[in-house]
Lab assay of single mutants.
Amino acid sequence: AVSDRLIGRKGVVMEAISPQNSALVKVDGETWRATSGTVLDVGEEVSVKAIEGVKLVVEKLE
């Protein structure tokens, strides 16, 4: 799938994300809905860990 190429890519949080709420991230110039197990604020850099349906699963870039 096209989205599989995004695993391992870096992105930027466009809307705050919490474990209860998905929000938008920008990866390679494209906007995607994403979820995370932690709270992520706007502007934080993230890494794509997986794809669940049409959502990216991201975590904060260390």
Rank of each mutant, 00 (worst) to 15 (best):
A1Q: 11
V2G: 10
V2I: 13
D4N: 13
D4C: 15
R5Y: 10
L6M: 08
G8L: 04
G8P: 02
R9E: 04
R9Q: 08
G11W: 01
G11N: 00
V12L: 08
V12G: 00
V12T: 08
V12W: 08
V12I: 12
V13I: 07
V13N: 00
V13H: 00
V13L: 08
M14Q: 06
E15M: 11
E15K: 09
A16Y: 14
A16D: 04
A16P: 10
S18V: 07
S18L: 08
S18F: 09
S18C: 10
P19W: 11
P19I: 09
Q20F: 13
Q20K: 10
Q20V: 09
N21T: 10
N21F: 11
S22I: 12
A23E: 03
A23H: 07
A23R: 03
A23I: 15
L24S: 06
V25G: 02
V25W: 00
V25C: 05
V25L: 03
K26H: 08
V27N: 01
V27G: 01
D28F: 04
D28Q: 05
G29H: 05
G29R: 03
E30W: 08
T31L: 15
R33I: 14
A34N: 04
T35S: 08
T35E: 09
S36Q: 02
G37M: 14
V39G: 08
V39N: 11
D41W: 14
D41P: 06
V42Y: 05
G43R: 03
G43V: 01
G43L: 04
E44I: 08
E44F: 06
E45Q: 10
E45S: 08
V46H: 01
V46N: 01
V46T: 01
S47H: 11
S47E: 14
V48N: 02
V48L: 02
K49D: 02
K49N: 05
K49H: 06
A50P: 00
A50T: 06
E52C: 14
E52W: 12
V54Y: 13
V54Q: 14
K55I: 15
V58Q: 00
V58I: 05
L61G: 05
L61H: 07
E62I: 12
